[in-house]
């Protein structure tokens, strides 16, 4: 509602397709609502200052035709209008006051955002890699810890703490509809707190240039009701189902005994590589390869057959599968719901 009141231009600029999917103008989390309020305060103060400058400029330009001016043609160029000296002092005081006010507003917004996040009830570790996100749901009981990738599910209304790390270069975790960004820096641990307030699907993406496929390093955050989240969470704890069809079994054998298992892990199978994303519930995710494509059978075929032409430079090699191997692998991956 605030968005509509304060930023009608945005609607005009973005046409009808505008949604909260990946935007700083959202009310999907407490943190972002604070951003919106503070942004409007800053915008109003800045707009007033800008209006003053422009008004003064226009007044000065319009005044040029008057008879008397302190210009060299009239030999008065070393004189100044006394009004201006008073104006300079007043303007300086106004600018300083405005800035102090904004600095105080900013400081208190910052404090309140930091303290709101004091007591998290869910802990997630996100580890950035070139160019995908490893997501680990932490639990006191180690057997309740699991990995997923490029997709985070959060229960609505629950404060969450996300621990941010990087395995290679600097990345930045940014889901605009839910919170500001935080960098993931090798050798350091950062934190971000989110309290989602609205059920929905939000998109985020890496905001710090991290190499070739920086643009294709997206992340989906699915904010569910508490019950839905719990169902998803329980499902994620399960290991991968055994393949039932002969084709899927052939795929299972290929995946667990050949190249794939060197990098990918599938819980409940011998595949336990940690270089690439965990595949245990791959088919239940919304996208392939960190948002490079939506999840579908056709896209899965494309990705497995030739990841290098879809996301050139990514660390998954094109290994040149035979058609029957490709059919088998995709048939198996489809079972990883």
């Amino acid at each position: 509602m605030k968005r509509r009141a304060a930023f009608p231009l945005i609607l005009m600029l973005s046409g009808c397709s505008y949604q909260h999917y990946q935007s700083t103008f959202s009310d999907a989390a407490a943190e972002v609502r604070q951003f919106n309020i503070l942004f409007v305060i800053f915008l109003v103060v800045c707009a007033v200052m800008y209006a003053l400058v422009i008004a003064f400029l226009i007044a000065g330009l319009l005044r040029r035709r008057r008879a008397r001016a302190n210009v060299m043609e009239e030999g008065r160029h070393h004189e100044t209008d006394p009004l201006m000296s008073a104006g300079l002092a007043g303007w300086g005081a106004l600018v300083a006051t405005g800035l102090v006010g904004l600095a105080i507003a900013s400081f208190f917004a910052d404090r309140s955002m930091a303290s709101a996040a004091a007591r998290p009830r869910l802990l997630i570790t996100v580890t950035a890699n070139q160019w995908w996100w490893d997501v680990r749901y932490e639990a006191g009981d180690k057997s309740k810890t699991f990995h997923t990738a490029n997709e985070i599910h959060l229960p609505v209304g629950v404060p969450v703490q996300i621990v941010l790390q990087s395995n290679d270069v600097i990345h930045s975790f940014w889901v605009p509809s839910l919170a500001g960004k935080q960098d993931l820096i090798p050798g350091r641990v950062n934190n971000i707190s989110i309290t989602p307030t609205k059920v929905g699907i939000y998109r985020g993406q890496c905001a710090e240039y991290c190499g070739a496929e920086h643009a294709k390093m997206a992340l989906i955050v699915d904010v569910d009701s508490y019950g839905d989240f719990l169902g998803w969470w329980r499902h994620q704890l399960e290991t991968a189902p055994q393949p039932t069809t002969p084709l899927a079994t052939a795929g299972y054998n290929f995946v667990t005994s050949r190249n794939c298992a060197a990098c990918h892990a599938i819980a409940g199978t011998p595949a336990s590589g940690t270089v690439g994303p965990d595949l245990t519930h791959l088919a239940s995710r919304r996208s392939i390869a960190a948002g490079a494509m939506p999840m579908s059978e056709g896209n899965l075929y494309g990705w497995v057959a030739d990841p290098q032409s879809i996301k050139p430079g990514n660390h998954m090699p094109t290994i040149g599968l035979e058609p029957d191997q490709l059919h088998a692998v995709v048939a198996y991956l489809k079972t990883l719901k």
């Binding site: 700083t24 972002v32 604070q34 951003f35 503070l38 942004f39 800053f42 904004l102 600095a103 507003a105 900013s106 917004a109 910052d110 955002m113 930045s172 940014w174 605009p176 919170a179 500001g180 960004k181 935080q182 905001a207 710090e208 240039y209």
Partner: peptide, 11 residues
């Protein structure tokens, strides 16, 4: 220049 705003707008 404001930290809370920059965290959204940065980069």
């Amino acid at each position: 220049a404001s930290v809370p705003l920059d965290l959204q707008l940065h980069d």
